[in-house]
Nucleic acid binder design. Structure first.
Lengths: 335, 335
DNA sequence: CAGAGGGCTGGAAACGTTTTCGGTAACGCT
DNA sequence: AGCGTTACCGAAAACGTTTCCAGCCCTCTG
């Protein structure tokens, strides 16, 4: 059953059927009705592949998730998918390792699947600008900023990582901590990790706190990597009384490590996380953390992408609010 | 950049390029090399839409995830997506609430998106047989069984929930527990919850353990719902010395509740979870749990679906192995 | 009444593949 | 030399749409 059959059955040309199906204005009301009648009766659905081949698009949105272990994204990807679906868009989700080059991946996607637009969840386009300029569909980057890059088809939405990290450190300092370690940030430090680290530095400076570069350990966003890194860090630097973890997942790995070292949270080591995933309220002890607003992130991000889809428009680089959420994992150090 | 360009650049016909790309045997080694060189150099990727139009195979696989909070699915969906992608299939993921009717949803998907096949992650087709019979594409149901339903286009893969639950209860009984509570199973008990509960009953019978219906509390697969349910259960029945939770997420919510009640895990209340999510090894205390083999589940499930895609074949209803993973959350009760 | 213009329509050319079918060259055999 | 076989290859016909373009008919204007 093709458009041709419909044309024959309703006594019109294929072009007219196509026009009816696409709600094209140039077709008389009477013809439209006649064609639609046949379409309905036959339960005809136009062939998606042919349609897409001709239109040179795949009619779906690609959601590229980088750093899949980060539980923040689980929430985010679900929200985005929901929102896109509500807007009548089909979304294909692609999960990438932290090691993968997301832009190269997206580029391949563009060639193979021809998505209408791309939603990046996490990832760091700054490192891959060269590749990115070959991507021409509208893109939105969530949880990271792409403002300085200045691509006309790229918007971004992020939490103010620097300020949030700064406040987290201040929170710990307020409690009396003076030797604060840093846990997280990729092996090859990403922009996002950098911004948070920078916030920490600013706090250290403002508060005249010491910072020894040895007090920092890089790790991926996974429980087990964080576990190992936390062990290394605390064995190397037992003088630390607090740790700022660049994500909640990392913080949870660290809690386990601290306990396995025979120390306690928060009595011996205080902990502040980042992200505010639902789990943070339920682990023992409850995490003190920076909550990113995933609802805003998803809502505005999808909005931005949809707008770019309708017609090209100037890129937006927004910041969504965060919230320091006190838990039980940070307390004054024992004297 | 099309196959035509590649043909021109490597001085062969389009048919030959196509043959090379499709690993067709009828092409000399020398020509193959020459063509591949150009393909690599240009980073050429054949147009999926054109390919699919010609091959008469359509669009993509729908992955319908029901019960998104269950962290087991986060892992599973990612694995499935990866495997499908490796097989050259595009996967669209759809997240559903536990309240949604997944079959009605899939039906709508079939009308609107025309997926090639459907992979159900979680969900309970038994309740929606009437709707399901209108779905004609090949389907695979993961983590639940659909054997008794006998649909020719529906395969399923599940852990032996009953046996696993039975072993979990035996494990607790071995430690000396005699008053064991049950936590989980949806408000409207799903098939999967039923099977686990049935396993428990069998264990109770075999071990001649008492079971008071008041010792069971239903809840969804979410931290907060589990938290509330655990509180209700333990306040109502303080005599319980152990809880079998129908998922790890529920167990984690329960741990929090138990602590907030001023009791300790495992000293006052022992806990066994279900699923074996990565997090289980990192929470405090480490969860004793039943590990479902997500790798097998995903691999075999995708395999089954792909086979059904190629040509209709008899449905398979498999069982994948599980493993009781001792942690620190279950210990002998204090006398 | 001629011509212009607008509303509808259908034919046909794309879109980028896969695959059939026939053709060429090389080779071995009688 | 003639023939059959084999190994490779290219032209061209699909696949089912969308869209450009040309054409028709009508109405309106001068």
């Amino acid at each position: 059953m093709t458009i041709k059959d419909i044309a024959r059955m309703s006594g019109v040309g294929v072009a007219t059927v196509s026009r009816v199906l696409n709600h094209h204005p140039d077709v008389s009301e009477e013809t439209r009705r006649r064609v639609m009648a046949v379409v309905e009766e036959q339960g005809f659905q136009p062939n998606t592949n042919a349609r897409r081949l001709k239109q040179q698009t795949s009619a779906s949105i690609a959601v590229v998730v980088k750093g899949t272990m980060n539980m923040l994204f689980a929430d985010l990807v679900e929200r985005c998918q929901q929102l896109l679906q509500d807007a009548g868009q089909d979304a294909s989700v692609y999960y990438l390792d932290e090691d993968d080059n997301e832009v190269a991946y997206a580029l391949r996607l563009c060639r193979e699947r021809k998505p209408l637009g791309i939603l990046f969840l996490g990832g760091d386009l700054e490192s891959f600008q060269a590749e990115f300029q070959h991507i021409s569909v509208p893109c939105v980057l969530l949880t990271n900023s792409a403002g300085e890059l200045g691509f006309p088809n790229l918007s971004s939405l992020t939490t103010d990582d620097e300020e949030a990290a700064c406040q987290a450190i201040c929170y710990l300092a307020d409690q009396g901590h003076r030797r604060i370690g840093l846990l997280g940030g990729n092996r090859s430090p990403t922009q996002i990790g950098c911004r948070r680290v920078q916030g920490c530095r600013r706090a250290f400076d403002e508060l005249s706190l010491p910072f020894d570069p040895r007090w920092s350990e890089l790790c991926r966003y996974s429980f087990s990597d964080a576990y190992d890194a936390a062990k290394r860090l605390l064995e190397r630097c037992p003088e630390l009384t607090a740790l700022f973890c660049l994500s909640d997942v990392i913080a949870i790995g660290a809690i386990r490590a601290i306990r396995d070292l025979g120390r306690r949270v928060p009595e011996d080591v205080s902990l502040v996380g980042f992200d505010g995933i639902p789990l943070a309220r339920f682990v023992v002890p409850r995490l003190t953390t920076v909550r990113q607003d995933t609802q805003q992130l998803a809502r505005q991000g999808v909005e931005l992408l949809l707008r770019g889809l309708r017609r090209p428009c100037a890129p937006v680089h927004g910041v969504v609010p965060f919230q320091l959420l006190p838990g039980e994992s940070a307390a004054p150090p024992r004297t």
